[in-house]
Computed example of a mutant assay.
Amino acid sequence: MAAAVALAVALPLSATACGGGSSSSGDTIVIGTKFDQPGLGLKNPDGTMSGFDVDVATYVAKELGYAPDKIEWKESPSAQRETLIQNDQVKFIAATYSITDARKEKVSFAGPYLVTGQSLLVKADNTDITGADSLQNNKKLCSVSGSTPAQRIKDKYPGVQLQQYDTYSACIEALKNGAIDAVTTDEVILAGYAAQSPGTFKIVGEPFSTENYGIGLKKGDTEFCTKVTDALKKMETDGAWKAAWDKNLGPAGLPAPTPPTLDPC
């Protein structure tokens, strides 16, 4: 059940290292995901990859004809995702990637394969932050550059001191050492971090958005989008989707929701 996804380590991203970049080379495929999000996309100390997004991407790759050991994982920070796709550095990205109109101008999406919502993570002993509205009193809030949650805070909560870091793991460290008061992103991401450090953090308030995670791919590639959508559909119906949730996010206390309805390409 917890079978590790093999990581190509000999020459990482060898498929993109020459010829101006290519998202696939022969019998390998380059897939983008996060490397620092426990429960979703995490590069483990031994070099293996784990998480719900990783399992979804691995399943899709299998349906496309690529075994796990033929996947080359490419770290895909929030602010770089569209560029990685546009420059053919990855074939597709599964990296807590919210489907938005602005992003659809640059890339196409298959999905959504997961629906979540923006929430807040604070230290376990915090009592003065109870939800989004309690952030307005000059609270220091951390999110990631280029992310949907960061933009929402700027648009809707101008009284917040927003700190933008490159990764959520950097935000978590800042929360741990008291440099910031709260971290905001999607609830499933926060749950992964909370589960990683039991008793250290807590999620507060109700989610204040709806985020539809999709698989990002080359804009206008309807044929490939349809293949990915078919793979996601199969994953949802054969039980693999729920198994991936239970394995990766169940330990955080989040029960598996009903898989979302997939949009046509």
Score class of each variant (00 low, 15 high):
G214I: 12
L190P: 00
E211P: 00
G216H: 11
K218H: 11
P207S: 09
V188P: 00
Q196V: 11
G205P: 05
G216E: 12
K218W: 10
K219V: 06
E211F: 04
I215V: 12
S209A: 04
F208Q: 07
E206W: 08
F201D: 10
S197M: 15
G205N: 12
E206P: 03
I215D: 01
T184W: 04
Y213H: 04
I203K: 04
I189P: 02
I215S: 02
D186G: 01
Q196E: 14
K218A: 11
K219Q: 12
K219R: 11
I203D: 01
L190Y: 03
V188F: 02
S197H: 15
V188S: 01
N212L: 09
G205R: 13
A191R: 10
F208C: 00
Y213N: 02
N212E: 14
G205Q: 14
D186V: 03
Y193F: 15
F201W: 15
G205E: 13
E187T: 14
A191I: 13
G205L: 12
E206S: 09
G192M: 07
K219H: 09
S209N: 07
F201I: 15
N212Y: 13
L217K: 06
F208V: 04
N212K: 14
V188N: 01
E187P: 00
S197G: 08
P198Y: 14
S209K: 10
A194E: 06
G199I: 13
A195E: 01
K218P: 03
P198H: 13
A191P: 04
V204K: 07
L190C: 03
I215H: 03
S209Q: 06
K218N: 09
I203N: 00
G192C: 05
N212A: 11
Y193I: 10
G216Y: 13
E187W: 07
L217H: 08
P198E: 10
I189L: 11
S197D: 15
